[in-house]
Design a protein around this nucleic acid. Structure first.
Lengths: 326, 326
DNA sequence: GTGAAAGCGCTAACAT
DNA sequence: ATGTTAGCGCTTTCAC
C-alpha cells in the first residue's frame, strides 16, 4: 500500500482511504491511485485490515454436512445476502458431532468473524460459553428455541411431525411406519409423528432407524424391504425423515409392483427439487430453505447495526405439500 | 495473550510458544499457562498470527455451486485432508460465471490464503495474472490440462464422452440423443460423445440443452418428453450430462410405460449414490470424487512443503459403470 | 483533502 | 527455557 502510494505521489493512508471511502479523496488523486494499483497488481491485505479495524467482514458457518442439500441450499440463500453486504463465508462441517462442533467453534472464533451461523440449537456448554464470551453475533438455524444464544431462525420439528400425523389420519390411514436418520432433529419429528398417530389409532408403529450421515435413496429402498420382510408391514403410510428415503420407498414399491398410495403411502421431508417429479409425485413437508437462509442473514445484519430485533426467534414455519404419494 | 502471560507469571511470547510449540516451554509453565487460558477463556487471534507469520492456514475454494453434489462431495474429501493438516477452508460459489470467479479470486486473495482450489481450467486472463502474481499455490480440479496455473487434478471430459460413445456402439445402439447442462465441461463430454457416435453410425443426434444451473430430475423428465414429442426420438440411448437428468428420464420412461433399456436406454454421469438404486439401476460414468478431492489436497500439501511434484497434472480417470439402464 | 503517529495481537530473530 | 525487540500491513485518531 505504501509503494502504491509512492507511485501515485501520496501517502499510504490516502491509498487506504481511496479503497475504503473514495469520497474522502479528491477525484484526481483517486485516479492516480487506481492507476498505480492497476500497474502494480496490488491486492490489499484483508488480514491486516481486519486486525486494525477489528472487523473481519467474515462470517463463519457450521453445518452438519455440506453434501446434504438441505443445509447447502440454506447456505446458498444465506451467502447470497451476506455477499451482497460485503461479507465472506467460511464454512465447516461438524458431521453431526457436538464435540467436533465445539472444536470448530473455537478455531472459527480464532478468525474473529463478525458473525457466526450455527445449525441447530443444541451446543455443548463450553461452546455456548465461548460464543457468549466472545460477543460474536450468532444465528442458530434450522430449529427454534425460546432461549437462543443470540437469535434463531427455524421451525418446530415436533410441529412438522404432529401435523404430518394429523394429515395422515385425516387422509384415512390407520397403519403407519417411520424411517428416520440418525439425527436428533429427525428423531424429534418422528417422535411427534408417532405420538400423534398413536393417540388417534392406538397402533404401534414399526420403525427403521439409520445411523448419522446423509440419507440415501438406497437406504430408502432398503427400509421398505425391511419393513415388509422383517416387520410384517403390509400396508399404510410411511413417514420419512427425508425425501431421499421417501424416493427410495417409492422406487422399491415400484420394483415390487405395490400400489402407491393405496397400498404403500409415503410422506417425505424437505420438498427437494425432485419431489414434485417423482412417479408418483411425493407428498412432503416443505421448508423454504432459501428464505430461511436469507432470513438468517438478515437477522445477523440487523444485529450488526444494533437494530432492535423485535424477536430473537423467527419461526419460518413449514407446509405439508399434498401430492400423489399419500 | 499478554494478560494470560501476566496471570501465569510469564511474558506474552511464552504464551505464544506454549500454543504453537509446547515442547519449547517447561511442563510446569505450560500447566500454569493452560490454567490461565482456561480461567480467562482466551481464544488466540488467528488474524494477528497470520499477519505476523505470513501463514494464514487458510485455503480458499471456488466452486460453481455448493448445492451441486458433484462439487460438494469433492470438497468433502478435500476439506477432510486439509483439516487434518490444520487448514481451514473458505468457500465461495462462482455460479458458472467467469467474471464472478475473477471477483471472488480477488477477494479471496485479499485474505492471503496459503493455497487455493479452483474448479476447472479456464479462468480469465486477469484472474490468471493475479494468481500467478500472488504466488499462491493453486490446484485446479475437475478437469485436466497440460498447462495448469500450478497443478491440476481431474480427468478428461472429452475422454468420458468418447468412451461412452464406444460403449453405446458396442452395446448395439444405433440411435442416440443427448441431454446436457449449460456447463462448458458437460458440453465437451457431449461433443465427444456425438462425434464418436456419429463416426460409427453416421446418425444425427437430437439434443436437449439446458441453461447453466443445477441439473434436476424434473428437467430430465422434461427432456424425454421433448425428445419424444418434439424431436421424434422413439428409441435409442440417451447420454446425459448428469445422473439427475438420467434419473428423470428413467422416471418419465416409467410413467410412459416405455421399456428400459430396450426402448429407451440411458447413460448418466457422476455415479451419484442413488445411481445404483434407481429402477432400473443406472449405467453411468463414475468419477471417484472423494479421491479426487483428496488427491487435490495432497497436491497442494506437497506444494507447501516444496516437495517436487512428479507431475503437475494428475489424471484420476473415470470408469463406465454398466448397470441395467443401458 | 491529506499526512503523521500509534497500535491492532500476534510471530520471528536474536538475546540471555 | 524464557525474554526483548521489531515488525506484519493495515485503520484510527488527530493534526494541518
Amino acid at each position: 500500500m505504501a509503494s502504491v502510494g509512492r507511485m501515485a505521489g501520496v501517502s499510504q493512508v490516502t491509498v487506504s482511504r481511496a479503497l475504503s471511502d473514495p469520497s474522502k479523496v479528491s477525484p484526481e488523486t483517486l485516479r492516480r491511485i487506481h492507476e498505480a494499483i492497476e500497474a502494480t497488481g496490488f491486492v490489499p491485505n484483508a488480514l491486516a485490515g481486519a486486525l486494525a479495524s477489528r472487523r473481519s467482514r467474515l462470517i463463519t458457518a457450521l453445518v452438519p454436512s455440506i453434501t446434504n442439500i438441505v443445509y447447502s441450499s440454506l447456505l446458498h440463500g444465506f451467502s447470497d445476502i451476506m455477499r451482497e453486504h460485503g461479507y465472506q463465508i467460511m464454512l465447516s462441517e461438524t458431521g453431526f458431532d457436538p464435540e467436533r462442533e465445539q472444536e470448530m467453534i473455537e478455531t472459527h472464533l480464532a478468525r474473529r468473524p463478525d458473525g457466526m451461523l450455527l445449525t441447530g440449537i443444541h451446543h455443548s456448554a463450553a461452546a455456548r460459553r465461548m460464543l457468549i464470551g466472545s460477543g460474536t453475533p450468532v444465528v442458530e438455524v434450522w430449529d427454534i428455541t425460546e432461549t437462543p444464544i443470540d437469535c434463531c431462525v427455524g421451525f418446530s420439528h415436533a410441529a412438522t411431525g404432529a401435523e404430518a400425523a394429523e394429515f395422515a389420519i385425516r387422509a384415512g390411514y390407520r397403519r403407519a411406519a417411520t424411517v428416520t436418520a440418525g439425527d436428533q432433529r429427525a428423531q424429534r419429528r418422528r417422535d411427534a409423528f408417532v405420538e400423534g398417530f398413536r393417540a388417534a389409532t392406538g397402533e404401534e408403529l414399526p420403525a427403521i432407524d439409520f445411523p448419522p450421515g446423509t440419507a440415501t435413496l438406497g437406504q430408502g429402498r432398503d427400509s421398505l424391504r425391511r419393513l415388509i420382510e422383517e416387520k410384517g408391514f403390509e400396508a399404510g403410510v410411511i413417514f420419512c425423515s427425508s425425501d431421499q428415503y421417501a424416493h427410495g420407498i417409492l422406487t422399491e414399491a415400484m420394483a415390487r409392483n405395490l400400489r402407491v398410495p393405496d397400498q404403500i403411502a409415503v410422506i417425505g421431508f424437505g420438498d427437494q427439487s425432485f419431489a414434485e417429479h417423482t412417479f408418483p409425485s411425493l407428498t412432503t413437508v416443505r421448508i423454504d430453505r432459501d428464505a430461511l437462509g436469507k432470513a438468517a442473514a438478515k437477522a445477523l445484519l440487523d444485529r450488526f447495526e444494533n437494530r432492535p430485533l423485535k424477536t430473537s426467534t423467527i419461526n419460518v414455519g413449514f407446509e405439508i405439500i399434498k401430492r400423489a404419494s399419500a
